[in-house]
């Protein structure tokens, strides 16, 4: 019984440590993205195929609709329901095994 209590307490403490690394914890300290500046820029001069631009517009999608931005939403809109390629199982998929290859020692 004692062993079970120790194991359960340890598991609880470990789960609390993991929770401390939850990205939501950092959100409180983070500054909001400067989407107003992005909305006011000339989008015609931007390369909308650039992953950086796509990511910026995806980040600012909600905020820019508030600023009344009506620029080519089809280009900016990313299907965020689609799962990232690394999430699809063949690229680690959130597991901690590096495909079981990275640490042969």
């Amino acid at each position: 019984m004692k062993t079970k209590i120790i194991v359960l307490t340890t598991a609880l403490l470990v789960s609390m440590l993991v929770a401390a690394h939850d990205p939501k914890e950092h959100a409180k300290e983070s500054k909001a993205p400067d989407c107003q500046s992005l909305a006011s820029m000339d989008h015609a001069k931007m390369d909308m195929d650039d992953p950086v631009m796509k990511a910026m517009f995806a980040k600012c999608k909600d905020a820019m609709s508030e600023y009344g931005d009506g620029h080519d939403k089809e280009n900016h809109d990313m299907d965020m329901k689609d799962t990232a390629s690394v999430k699809d199982g063949d690229h680690d998929g959130g597991h901690n095994d590096d495909h079981g290859h990275d640490d042969p020692h």
Binding site: P23, H26, S30, P51, V52, K54, A55, A58, K59, M78, M80, D82, A84, S85, V86, D90, H91, D92, D98, H99, H101, D102, D103, P104, H105
Partner: peptide, 26 residues
């Protein structure tokens, strides 16, 4: 030596930049 067998996934997905940026910053 330790990383030679790691398979690199596609890294040009904008969603990865959105996920990795805040972590890098912090």
């Amino acid at each position: 030596n330790a990383s030679k067998d790691i398979v690199v996934p596609a890294l040009d997905d904008p969603k990865l930049l959105l996920a990795g940026g805040p972590d890098y910053n912090e």
